[in-house]
Amino acid sequence: MTSAAIQEDAGTTYFVNEHSIVRTIWGKADTVLFIFAGSAAEFALNKAVDWLYFTGKLPADPLGRLFSTVSYARAIVFAKNNDALKAIDKITGIHSAVENARGAQIPDWAYRDVLFMLIDYSIRSFEILERKLTQQEKEEVFAVFYRIGDRMGLKGLPPTFNVWLTMRVQHLDQNLVNGHYTKDLFKQYRKHLGALRYFILIEVQKMIVPERVKTLLRFGNLQIIYPVLAMYKFSRHLKMDWFLKSILLPGQYKQQVKELDYTK
């Protein structure tokens, strides 16, 4: 194959194989919303969350900021290879600009934490809403986000899924703290969601986050989420799930969430 043909093939193939379980996970608004919920909890605890406060965007619009992070990841999953690489490079450029403005560097472990969250909550969300993943499928999820981190030039990435499992536990133990940013961010969640939606968010978070996160956030027992989840799963068969989503989501995010369902 000529170099021109190789370049053309790289531009027309997808970053993630069209039959990959990763596309199945990230192609449904349901699973993406659960990924969002888990990430929202863990973001608030991360010791590097002050970087997200530096620009002022996170406290001003915490839901939009988190949606942006999740949406970027989702766009990469469904992009052609060259487009995905450009999107990853754009993310790297945005972070570099923030670092230059602050005159400091975002720690490598903080970058890894975000990747680790996306891997973990991709798996957890799908298993709660659909079925258990096989070992091979879990390794596929890991491989996709490893490639994203590798493209970003991140140091210290785990080489395999099993090594990631160990590092994930270490990161949870070392890099999370319930501090004043945590309390402020949850206040912002409540402010932007309203009391009922905030209650549902917390219930979903109790279901999906690791034990370390539950402990730090002092989460109590689950209350109503399992019956609600069962009703929601049933509503999908009746094509009524969007009625429930319209109740549970703030109006300004409904269209964004609708677009998360991959229909191509």
Rank of each mutant, 00 (worst) to 15 (best):
M1P: 08
A4I: 14
A4P: 01
A4W: 09
A5S: 14
Q7N: 13
E8R: 14
D9L: 15
T12C: 12
T13N: 11
F15L: 02
E18N: 13
W26E: 03
D30N: 09
D30Y: 03
D30L: 04
T31F: 04
V32P: 00
V32W: 01
L33D: 00
I35W: 01
F36R: 00
A37F: 06
A37D: 06
F43L: 14
L45E: 06
L45N: 04
N46V: 10
L52W: 01
F54H: 07
K57V: 12
K57P: 01
A60E: 15
P62K: 04
L63G: 00
L63K: 00
G64V: 03
R65K: 11
F67H: 10
V70Q: 04
S71H: 08
Y72Q: 08
R74W: 07
V77C: 04
N81L: 09
N82E: 12
D83L: 10
A84L: 11
K86M: 09
K90G: 08
T92M: 09
S96Q: 14
A97P: 00
A97K: 15
E99V: 05
A104S: 15
I106H: 02
D108T: 11
W109Y: 14
W109Q: 09
Y111Q: 04
Y111G: 00
R112I: 10
F116K: 01
M117Q: 15
I119Y: 02
D120G: 02
S122L: 05
S125H: 02
F126W: 15
F126R: 02
I128V: 15
E130Q: 13
K132R: 14
E137K: 06
K138Q: 15
A143M: 05
V144W: 00
R147N: 08
I148H: 01
G149R: 00
R151M: 07
R151S: 08
M152E: 04
P158F: 07
P159F: 10
F161P: 00
F161Q: 04
V163Q: 11
M167A: 09
V169R: 13
L172Q: 06
Q174C: 08
L176V: 08
L176S: 03
N178W: 05
Y181N: 03
F186L: 11
F186C: 06
K187D: 13
Q188C: 12
Y189A: 01
Y189T: 01
L193A: 00
G194N: 10
R197V: 03
R197S: 03
E203C: 09
V204C: 09
V204D: 01
K206Y: 07
K206C: 05
M207W: 09
M207C: 09
V209I: 13
P210E: 03
P210C: 06
P210G: 03
E211I: 10
R212D: 12
K214S: 15
T215R: 13
L216P: 02
L216A: 04
Y226K: 14
P227A: 11
A230M: 13
F234A: 14
S235I: 05
S235M: 11
H237M: 11
H237D: 05
M240I: 06
M240F: 12
D241C: 03
W242H: 12
F243N: 10
L244C: 05
S246W: 07
L249I: 15
P250Q: 08
Y253T: 02
Q256A: 07
K258T: 11
L260N: 04
D261Y: 10
T263A: 13
